[in-house]
């Protein structure tokens, strides 16, 4: 077993902890913070079912973004759908036997990788070329795209340029799942790819990637428009009613 296998295994444990722990803390924070006033934005559903549909359209079709800007929408869809396919495809490294639907998406995974890279490139081009988006961009916005592009390109390179021993990679991750460290194939491209993924996992809970859990907690999107029918009072606001019951 190489030092590299050891280092990567340990780093992945660390990254997984930071990723999961960080996200949990964030999500708990969102969940615990009250939303004292009803502020859904139109078109606001009047039932919980409606909210579920709205949220589904929002996270799967990017409905609001579609209304806002077709370019960003198309590039965003390309990137996110590509990414989703890629993530599904990568499940084969963690399952044995490979779940049948994971096997089923394998052939599309590679197109997912391409879509992802194309989408990212387009989004970056916008960030660089469109004056007002350049204006609002911070260095981290650019770096985030570089990071994701790096992950996508190094992944594609392993498919088309230098093919590492994927069976060994799978053995490594299956072992990792069971706290047994298996040798990782000796491939610089693979090391690069994995390192970038590690960085992504670690920055996730501290960055704008929080938009992923955040959208579910967005009061303008997740509230039912029923304020006349139901009295909603948050705990800190309810105390005021008790203090001055007659106004």
């Amino acid at each position: 077993m190489t030092t590299a296998s050891m280092v990567f295994a340990l780093l992945f444990y660390l990254a997984a902890l930071v990723f999961a722990g960080g996200l949990l803390v964030r999500i708990a924070g969102y969940a615990r913070t009250p939303a004292p006033l009803r502020i859904p934005t139109t078109p606001a559903p009047t039932t919980i079912r409606g909210v579920v549909f709205r949220m589904a359209r929002e996270v799967m079709l990017f409905e609001s973004l579609f209304k806002a800007n077709l370019w960003i929408w198309a590039l965003g869809i390309l990137f996110h759908f590509g990414l989703a396919l890629v993530v599904l495809r990568h499940l084969r490294y963690f399952t044995e036997p490979v779940w049948f639907w994971v096997a089923a998406v394998q052939p599309f995974g590679i197109y997912g990788g391409m879509a992802m890279v194309l989408g990212l490139a387009g989004l970056w081009a916008r960030r660089l070329l469109v004056e007002r988006i350049r204006y609002i961009s911070t260095p981290s916005d650019h770096l985030m795209l570089v990071l994701l592009l790096g992950i996508g390109l190094s992944g594609l390179a392993m498919q088309y340029v230098a093919h590492p021993d994927v069976i060994a990679v799978k053995r490594f991750f299956l072992g990792w799942l069971h706290f047994s460290i298996q040798p990782l194939p000796d491939s610089l491209l693979l090391y690069l790819h994995l390192s970038l993924v590690l960085v992504l996992m670690i920055v996730f809970p501290f960055s704008k990637l929080l938009h992923a859990p955040g959208v579910f907690f967005s009061p303008t999107r997740n509230q039912v428009d029923d304020s006349r029918e139901v009295r909603h009072v948050s705990a800190w606001a309810a105390r005021m009613d008790v203090e001055r019951p007659h106004g």
């Binding site: 009250p34 806002a68 988006i133 916005d141 009061p219």
Partner: peptide, 24 residues
């Protein structure tokens, strides 16, 4: 306020600087 209003708290974190709102 970050502790009292979920809106503020989530909105401070969630923006990805996509610019979809920038011309609205």
């Amino acid at each position: 306020l970050l502790g009292k209003y979920r809106s503020l708290r989530v909105y401070m974190d969630a923006c990805v600087h996509c610019g979809a709102c920038s011309d609205k």
